[in-house]
Computed example of a mutant assay.
Amino acid sequence: MDRIKALLSLREKLVRHRTAYKNGLSDLKDCYVEGENALIVEVQLNLISELDKQIQKVEDEIRMIIHSDDSLEVNYNLAKSVIGVGPILAAYLIAFTNNFINFDNPRSFACFAGIAPFSESSGKQKGNARVHPYANKQLKSLLNMGAMSAIRIPGELKNYYLSREKAGKNNMSTMNIIRNKIVFRVFAVIKRKVPYINHSKFAA
Score class of each variant (00 low, 15 high):
I40C: 08
N77A: 02
N77P: 02
S71Q: 14
E73H: 13
N75K: 14
G84F: 01
I48P: 04
L45D: 08
G84E: 04
I62L: 10
L45H: 07
V74G: 00
G35I: 10
L47C: 10
V82I: 05
D60A: 13
V43M: 05
Q54M: 04
V85S: 00
V43G: 00
V43F: 03
E50R: 05
K53G: 02
H67V: 03
N23F: 04
K53D: 07
N77T: 02
E42C: 06
V82N: 03
V33I: 13
E34T: 11
S26W: 04
D60K: 14
I40E: 12
A79I: 07
E42D: 15
Q54D: 06
A79R: 03
N46H: 04
S81T: 09
C31R: 14
S68N: 15
V33P: 00
G86K: 06
M64C: 06
E34I: 12
Y32I: 12
V33H: 10
D69Q: 15
I55F: 02
L51N: 05
P87C: 07
S71D: 15
V74H: 10
S68H: 14
L78T: 10
V33S: 11
Q44G: 02
V74L: 14
V58E: 00
E59T: 00
A38H: 06
K57L: 05
G86A: 10
Y76L: 14
Q54Y: 05
G84Q: 02
I55V: 11
